[in-house]
Nucleic acid binder design. Structure first.
Lengths: 354, 354
DNA sequence: GCCTGATATGTAAGCGCTTACATGCAGATT
DNA sequence: AATCTGCATGTAAGCGCTTACATATCAGGC
């Protein structure tokens, strides 16, 4: 139970030489037994492996990295771990890369491009062999810096059919286009929008473009007083809905939200205001978090398999490290989950007298 | 725009020697300019730093690790990133350690002690200098293995006043004791419990002990038919509540849930069953997720600052690496958020006729 | 003017491992 | 029998950096 002894690693750790001596072979054979076991006679290999286990020896990664010029390290840069979407992507990416003996280094930018660049530099300095980066809206020169070091990378979450970067994600614009078309098909003509900050965030920008594009095809534009941009919180969802509903007529009959949290806030506020969803007002979310299906009414939203995004990013990077130049990942599909928060507009929402 | 070239790092990266040559000094001075700048004449130091920046040189971590026997790596082992609680802890830990130039390696056990051990071994093999581990329920010998390598560690999330491990967490038993006492004070005498799996999970076990202990002090025991253990999902929360309510009389007047997700599920099911919360039934959660305060009715739950847990773990480990043997971290406080899902029992819950 | 001590820099020996190349040996080929 | 081939292993040269120790320089004290 002795813990907290002042000197770390007092007893010198065993080295390859110790194992070699005990097995009566050279360190080269010890190294081979671990790295290219098929090149060592089975009998000797087993002996080495057993002795190493007894001695508690494993190749020291710094020595190995130095000699082999391989670190088996991959970096992933995300905005924050506090959001399910990124946590799922990272979780799946890490699990998949672990299968190949690759360790993942995580950096969080907190939605700040300066922090993003700093994290990226730190990862590069650590010797990552590949990078997965959420979003392509990075500081100028960042991607050049990565390419200059010949480090393969993939942009996660975003997706465009472009040769500029390899993408592992889905078509944000297309996803929002289908949300818009669903509402248009139901007969809605007046829309409100509550969304998270779009600056520095290409996914949100793409979503807004998709929405505006689909509406424009029908000659419809979002009125500025019906658009609210702010923190992706329940609270802002509530405030946004309230602000929109307090504008003068005509009020929107459908509210598109940038994610489920905002949409759940809007749903809650609608109930608080006495507005009937979906009869008077349709509300859509995005992400399909666990709670969405259990709201009252259940939320119509877009489901994307974020773990799959992480897996595709991982597979692509593994292929880069092994083969050289694989095909870019295929975009992940999205599915509109039609539930009870959207319907044909029956009547305009009315605010009860104060 | 050339991406995907077959050969990685074709152009040889600059080395300390190149910087030294360009600056007209030895590599020792270059190293010192980066590691112990106060020992280098300011003029020369600035020159070296500038040349390094121009050449895009930074010390190669493998070489540095090998020579200095420092990796500046810390490992953190959590069950999963898919849960806010752990994501917050890791996020804060990472941010705090980054200030000291330490990189965090994440391992996820998926609540499986075999995977946990494997991840731990991999981290040790990578040369982590310290470890933060969620939960003390690890396979036998795991902590001995860590101690044998003289790697300082801290157990996160759990907390006991014991000399066995250093803990950075809070008193799970105490927290559930206060939930129980709150309900007892309101006059409840019949309790139900819906909780996540307790095997291999000392936090959950401690919570159950705390609850049972507080009830036992009042001569009350949980009836087995009122206890449901299963996945920590909304759905299981719903199923659990339904199953409890369908038992014969006397039905409980208060349901304690192992976390907010279960409690929100229970709340949703109660509404579906036509049971009035809190008049007929009180429900409590645990964690105080963002949604909890916005439920109908707002959920009474326990708030714990998980980011603070991460920070204390980080500070403790930093101190271990710098000073040697700091005091164990102080437990993090918890706060019962009294909202509208608990009240004195007015009447027994009644199921509407089928 | 000589010595002392402090300070700044250089020298060179590794840190622990991998791997190209050399060696030795057994069996196959002519 | 001589030669070749292929395989298992050993030899030894680094990988890029840090740091103990050696050396050089200079200010100040006597």
């Amino acid at each position: 139970m002795a813990r907290g002894s002042k000197e770390r690693n007092k007893a010198a750790a065993p080295r390859a030489l110790d194992v070699a001596a005990a097995a009566g072979v050279s360190t080269a054979t010890v190294s081979r037994a671990f790295n290219t076991p098929e090149k060592v006679a089975p009998e000797i290999r087993d002996k080495i492996l057993k002795i190493a286990a007894d001695l508690g020896w494993m190749p020291h990664p710094a020595g190995a990295a130095l000699a082999s010029r391989r670190t088996w390290l991959v970096g992933v840069l995300i905005p924050t771990l506090d959001h399910d979407v990124f946590a799922s992507q990272v979780g799946a990416l890490q699990a998949r890369l672990a299968e190949a003996g690759i360790t993942v280094l995580i950096g969080c930018s907190n939605y700040d491009s300066a922090q993003a660049e700093a994290q990226l530099r730190a990862m590069l300095a650590r010797g990552v062999e590949a990078l997965a980066i959420v979003g392509e809206a990075q500081r100028e020169g960042v991607f050049d810096m990565i390419r200059a070091r010949r480090v393969p990378y993939v942009v996660m979450y975003s997706y465009r059919d472009s040769a500029e970067h390899p993408f592992a994600g889905f078509d944000n614009a297309g996803a929002f286009r289908s949300v818009a078309r669903h509402l248009l098909d139901l007969g809605h003509r007046d829309f409100g929008l509550i969304h998270q900050p779009a600056g520095d965030n290409d996914r949100v920008q793409a979503r807004l473009d998709g929405l505006r594009g689909a509406l424009a095809e029908n000659g419809i534009a979002l009125r500025p007083q019906h658009v609210h941009e702010g923190a992706p919180s329940l609270l802002f969802g509530r405030q946004g809905l309230k602000a929109i509903m307090e504008t003068s007529e005509p009020r929107p009959t459908a509210i598109v939200c940038g994610n489920d949290t905002l949409a759940m806030g809007a749903l809650i506020e609608a109930r608080a205001l006495g507005i009937k969803v979906p009869d008077e007002l349709s509300i859509t979310g995005f992400d399909d978090v666990a709670m969405a299906a259990h709201m009252e009414p259940p939320l119509t939203t877009m489901r994307v398999d974020n773990a799959e995004i992480g897996r595709r990013a991982a597979d692509y990077l593994r292929a880069c490290l092994e083969d050289g130049a694989p095909d870019d990942p295929q975009p992940v599909e999205f599915h509109l989950m039609l539930r009870k928060s959207t319907a044909a507009p029956r009547s305009r929402p009315v605010l009860p007298d104060k």
